[in-house]
Design a protein around this nucleic acid. Structure first.
Length: 413
RNA sequence: CGGGGUGUCGUAUACCGGUAGUACGCUUGCUUUGGGAGCAAGAUGACGGAGUUCGAUUCUCCGCACCCCGACCA
């Protein structure tokens, strides 16, 4: 895309009402816009990064055998009443609305109820199991206090996968595979090294769950980690001796750290299946409740975490896997032949299907470089006088600052 | 939800009970182009309501919005 056609503009100043680094940089760079507290728009560059994050998660979910769906945001209260979670006293993050008729509806904060009810239509035999269903879907949570930029918002997209297994054993095998897939996801997004599989409370779902916590000072959670084992324990269960017997961790050797919860997986057991009548007939002809699990990742929160972790004093820094474009083509100088060379390279890259954002604006070199740094695109290709003369281009790695001289043909691969 | 705080051009800020200033951005013109260019000329602003006052952007109250700390995070 030509940058002259991009409607967003980079800003020099961060808005005064944002303290979180992720929101400051993403707003300055024009990736997101704040509508109100805890509610953000994704603008073209931000959407591209979000889409790439989603694509990586989707690949890994598909590799697990997941089937993608898109359930509704407006939710029928009935299954929630059956599970006992319709009351605001039980779930305090509800947004609810009413039909003209006066009937109450819920705005989805999660989808256990809706999907479990849906599955009763499709699961009746042990031959129908196991099944894995997931989606990327908007969740609404009426947080009392939104904070930390895009990390804790009232409206956000969530990847939620639900597993439907015959029994605890079959569930556990998938649960472990899902945990491994999660680790691969965070690796692919450049935050794997700092991300720990963390033993945590299961909230209202189960006694325990596993969180994926990325060590970062901007985090809201406190965890205790074992770097060798690459495991951690959330503060909320730190004093529970059972945690250490089941994980084999040595409490005394753990070190404290702040961390961001980028994912959470739960063993749900048969609670929802029993409440909503999701059962199957086993090989002996006996009815059995389905054994469930749920697995969440917030792509927006992951995006914020990457910003918190990898940005530098000049701006954003994206790993190639989630950079809005792979290349930022920047022309410097107004000479006709420089513009011509840059235009031609841009067209070439377009026809070869190489991702590129082309800064074709007539701004000073300094301003273009400063904005390019702020945008954080992985590789910057500079077209100046040298490039015109030699057809060899300067390629700068945003993260390291390393400069390479690359002939045109190589840029088209 | 408890406590604290803030609302001034698009953005960031300054000052003030009596004509609201600066920087960036924006418009026009000329020059400039490898690290947020220069000169000149412009346009644009006090969250809403009530009160106090001769006069309120400034003080008071109410509302709304936003931020921070804590609690909460199914």
């Amino acid at each position: 895309m030509r940058q002259s056609q991009l409607f967003t503009k980079a800003r020099r100043e961060a808005p005064a009402d944002e303290v979180a680094k992720n929101a400051q940089l993403l707003i300055r760079a024009g990736y997101i816009n704040k509508e109100m507290a805890g509610v953000y728009d994704y603008l073209p560059l931000g959407l591209r990064t979000l889409t790439k994050i989603i694509a990586i998660i989707r690949e890994e979910m598909n590799a697990l055998g997941g089937a993608e769906v898109l359930l509704t945001t407006l939710q029928d209260p009935q299954p929630w009443q059956e599970s006992g979670r319709w009351s605001d006293e039980v779930v305090d993050v509800w947004f609810k609305t009413v039909l003209k008729s006066g009937t109450e509806l819920g705005l989805a904060n999660t989808h256990e109820e809706a999907l479990t009810r849906l599955m009763t239509e499709h699961v009746s035999s042990y031959k129908d199991l196991p099944r894995y269903v997931y989606q990327f879907q908007t969740k609404f949570r009426n947080e009392i206090r939104a904070k930390s930029g895009i990390m804790r918002t009232r409206e956000f997209i969530m990847k939620d996968l639900y597993s439907f297994s015959r029994d605890a054993e079959e569930h556990q095998a998938f649960y472990d595979k899902a945990a491994t897939a999660y680790e691969r996801i965070f690796d692919r997004m450049g935050i794997g090294e700092q991300t720990y599989r963390t033993f945590a409370s299961g909230g209202s779902f189960s006694k325990y769950s596993h969180e994926f916590q990325t060590v970062c000072d901007a985090g809201e959670d406190t965890i205790y980690l074992d770097k060798e084992a690459k495991l951690a324990v959330n503060k909320e269960v730190y004093d529970d001796p059972e945690v250490y017997t089941s994980t084999g961790l040595d409490k005394a050797s753990l070190t404290e750290a702040k961390a961001i919860e980028v994912g959470n997986i739960f063993t749900l057991g048969t609670k929802y299946a029993e409440a909503l009548g999701l059962a199957y007939t086993d090989a002996e002809g006996k009815p059995q409740p389905v054994f469930m699990g749920s697995y969440g990742i917030g792509p927006g929160r992951v995006m914020g975490t990457i910003v918190e972790l990898l940005s530098d004093d000049k701006g954003l820094v994206w790993p190639e896997s989630v950079s809005p474009y792979a290349h930022h083509l920047v022309s410097v100088g107004k000479d006709e032949d420089i513009t011509k060379t840059a235009d031609e390279l841009y067209e070439d890259m377009q026809t070869h299907g190489v991702e590129v954002l082309y800064d074709d604006r007539g701004l000073s070199a300094g301003q273009k470089f400063a904005e390019s740094d702020l945008l954080g695109i992985t590789k910057r290709i500079v077209v100046g006088r040298d490039a015109v003369a030699t057809d060899i281009f300067e390629v700068v790695d945003r993260a390291s600052g390393a400069v390479a001289k690359v002939p045109r043909a190589e840029l088209l691969r």
